[in-house]
């Protein structure tokens, strides 16, 4: 490790550029993963037996495959299939390492998030759902306005864990030439013939990023759970005595 490199602005500027890519990879693949994962969770809970088992199979498969192999498979293997080499799919996803990474991470996140959201749905109290039906809401509205919002709050901390997992896992992108935080650190390391110093700098940024996200999640968790107000319990309205 060399101090002069560690304290050089060149190093920090270039790995900060990598940090941007890491954040972008995380945000995009979490967003797509959440959309697909929520859909899978809904199918898993409310779908027909067939649809539910298809979703369960998806979840099993994508939780079972190591992310690196999924990425290799999509990046090196998929272009062998001719219809993937044309059209929008190729332009957006398979032609670039970044696009393929987003695809692989999203597919993987979807499987884990589906399980998290499903857990959230299953912990929604039955009575709260029934109350929706009882006032005459349609099934669709009960799910979209009551079950899902409550479920999302229930599994917020798991979504947080998954975000942290994605931040770390996104470093795999560096293997297929994406200059994310780790990729950029290795790139700088190759230029200066010093592998260790840029890695240590990147490690510090990963630490800071994860700490920030952890704090954000904790804050959100608290903000969304209203604390009981002092005095709310003791407050008594005027009572009409009905019972003898």
């Amino acid at each position: 490790m060399s101090e002069s490199l560690f304290f050089s602005t060149t190093l920090w500027f270039s790995i900060l550029r990598g940090l941007q890519i890491t954040i972008l990879l995380t945000v995009l693949s979490m967003a797509f993963g959440l959309i697909l994962g929520t859909a899978l969770a809904l199918v898993r809970v409310y779908g027909s037996a067939l649809a539910s088992s298809v979703a369960a199979t998806y979840i099993f498969v994508f939780r079972g495959i190591p992310l690196l192999i999924l990425l290799y498979f999509l990046y090196y293997g998929a272009p062998q299939i001719s219809f993937l080499r044309t059209g929008l799919l190729w332009d957006v996803l398979f032609s670039s390492a970044f696009g393929t990474c987003i695809l692989a991470f999203s597919l993987n996140n979807a499987a884990y998030l589906a399980e998290a959201v499903r857990g959230g749905i299953l912990t929604v109290k039955k009575g709260q759902i029934e109350a929706g039906f009882a006032i005459g809401l349609t099934t669709r509205k009960v799910i979209s306005r009551i079950t899902l919002p409550i479920a999302m709050r229930n599994c917020l901390s798991q979504i947080g864990n998954e975000t942290i997992f994605t931040i770390k896992a996104s470093s795999i992108a560096s293997i297929v030439t994406v200059r994310d935080l780790l990729g950029q650190a290795q790139y700088v390391g190759n230029i200066y013939y010093d592998n260790i110093t840029p890695l240590l700098a990147a490690a510090i940024l990963y630490l800071v990023l994860v700490q920030i996200v952890e704090r954000l999640i904790r804050w959100a968790d608290r903000a969304l759970k209203p604390a009981p107000l002092a005095g709310a319990k003791g407050k008594r309205p005027n009572q009409l005595q009905v019972v003898s």
């Binding site: 109290k125 009575g127 709260q128 029934e130 109350a131 929706g132 009882a134 009551i146 919002p149 409550i150 709050r153 969304l224």
Partner: peptide, 11 residues
């Protein structure tokens, strides 16, 4: 219908 356990929506 009014329920025994109120079942207000917490969100």
């Amino acid at each position: 219908m009014v329920f025994q356990s109120f079942n207000l929506w917490p969100h």
